[in-house]
């Protein structure tokens, strides 16, 4: 089971903030494909300009393998405080 978190405008677009995926996707790329298959607009937004991906609270660039306990967060451009 991998946990997915959405922040800011992505949360509004998807209509959810947090989800557990079981079985967990093997990679971030597969995770994106799975979400895009359900919701094409969300899929597009996840790969949109300025969206960063954090795996277990560390920013990752490109793809990465996931484990059963991974937490993947999609971070749209940050607004500052």
């Amino acid at each position: 089971m991998a946990r997915v978190l959405l922040f800011g405008p992505l949360r509004d677009l998807a209509g959810w903030r947090e989800r557990d995926l079981d079985p967990p996707p093997a990679s971030i790329a597969e995770l994106k494909q799975r979400l895009a298959a359900e919701d094409a607009r969300l899929g597009e937004a996840l790969s949109g300009k300025g969206v960063q991906v954090a795996l277990d609270q560390q920013i990752v660039r490109g793809d990465a393998q996931l484990s059963a306990r991974s937490e993947v967060a999609f971070l749209p451009p940050m607004s500052g405080g």
Partner: peptide
């Protein structure tokens, strides 16, 4: 830094 780069989303 806090106003421009800190990880917050503001609505």
């Amino acid at each position: 830094y806090l106003k421009s780069r800190a990880p917050f989303w503001k609505k």
